[in-house]
Amino acid sequence: MSLDNVVEDIREEANARAEEIKESGEERAAEIRSEAEAEAEALIEEREAAVERQLEREREQALSSAKLEAKQARLGARRDVLERVRSQVESELAGLEGDRREELTRTLLDAAAVEFEDEDEVHVYGRADDSDLLETILADYDGYELAGERDCLGGVVVEGANSRVRVNNTFDSVLESLWEDNLKEVSTRLFDDQ
């Protein structure tokens, strides 16, 4: 074997080895590229899913916020209507006249008088506009006298002169009690609540 043949064999072997290394490198590069593309695809899918979840959370928050605002607006409107109804009832009570006003005032005074059966002197207070009516009614009660005015829609506040008992039987106090006891029913009737 000549030196030229040995050199040629080494060259062929080196070229073959270089070709193997090149092919191996290309295969490895293809694997790395494939892995990188798969990782990139997984990362894109993960990010898209995260963005979608964030969008869904923001949608739900916006919807919840809108529902809360609507509920608050609805409750505010209901409160306004209930206040107008109550104001109208107060106006009607304040505007009662004649026999109906006398009848209600007597009923409230009779209910309070039960507390003062042992009293010789009883003080009665009422609305300034009702002073003549109260004087007329009190003429039927021994020991009862009109003692002053109260800022109220009507009715009476009764106090014993010798005791610390005070009975507030004004239209205002009766309305307040009835309003609290029946507010749910009034609301249901006004707003057709289920």
Rank of each mutant, 00 (worst) to 15 (best):
E8Y: 14
E31Y: 06
S24A: 03
A29R: 02
I21C: 10
A36C: 09
I44L: 11
K22W: 09
E27C: 01
N15E: 15
E13T: 15
R11D: 10
R17K: 14
E35T: 05
E23C: 08
A38D: 11
R47K: 09
E26T: 00
E12P: 02
A14D: 12
E41L: 09
E37N: 04
D9N: 14
E46A: 07
E39C: 08
A38F: 10
L43V: 13
E26F: 01
R17N: 15
V7I: 15
A36I: 03
E20H: 11
E23D: 11
I10H: 06
S24T: 00
E37I: 05
A38T: 14
E31C: 04
R33Y: 06
A16Q: 11
E46G: 01
R11T: 05
L43R: 03
A40S: 08
R33K: 10
I32F: 03
A30Y: 07
E23P: 01
S24Y: 00
K22C: 12
R47W: 03
A49Y: 02
A42R: 03
G25M: 02
E23H: 07
E20V: 11
A30T: 09
E20W: 08
N15M: 14
A40R: 06
I10Y: 04
A14Q: 14
E12F: 05
E46T: 07
A18K: 10
I10E: 04
I32V: 07
E13P: 00
A14S: 13
I21D: 12
E46D: 08
V7L: 15
A30P: 02
E45Q: 08
E45W: 02
I21H: 10
E35H: 08
A18H: 11
E20Q: 13
E31M: 04
G25E: 04
A29K: 01
E19F: 13
A42G: 04
E12G: 04
R33L: 07
E12N: 09
K22I: 10
E37K: 05
N15S: 15
K22V: 10
A36F: 07
I21K: 14
A30E: 15
E39T: 09
A50S: 02
K22N: 13
I44K: 04
R28T: 03
G25T: 02
I44R: 05
E23K: 11
A18F: 15
E26Q: 01
A29F: 01
R33S: 07
I10P: 00
A42P: 00
A42S: 08
A50L: 02
I10L: 15
S34Q: 13
E23G: 05
E35L: 07
R11N: 13
R11I: 09
R28K: 13
A18P: 03
A30W: 04
D9Y: 13
R11H: 08
A29Y: 02
R47I: 10
E41A: 14
R11G: 05
G25Q: 04
E13K: 10
E12L: 12
A16V: 11
I10D: 06
R17C: 12
A30K: 06
E35C: 03
E27R: 00
D9F: 12
I44T: 08
A16C: 10
L43S: 10
V7E: 11
E45T: 07
K22F: 12
E45D: 11
A18Q: 15
E48L: 08
E27P: 00
R17D: 14
E26D: 07
E23F: 05
E27D: 11
A50H: 00
R11W: 07
G25S: 06
E20I: 08
A40M: 09
E35Q: 13
E13W: 09
E23Y: 05
E13L: 12
E8H: 14
I32Y: 05
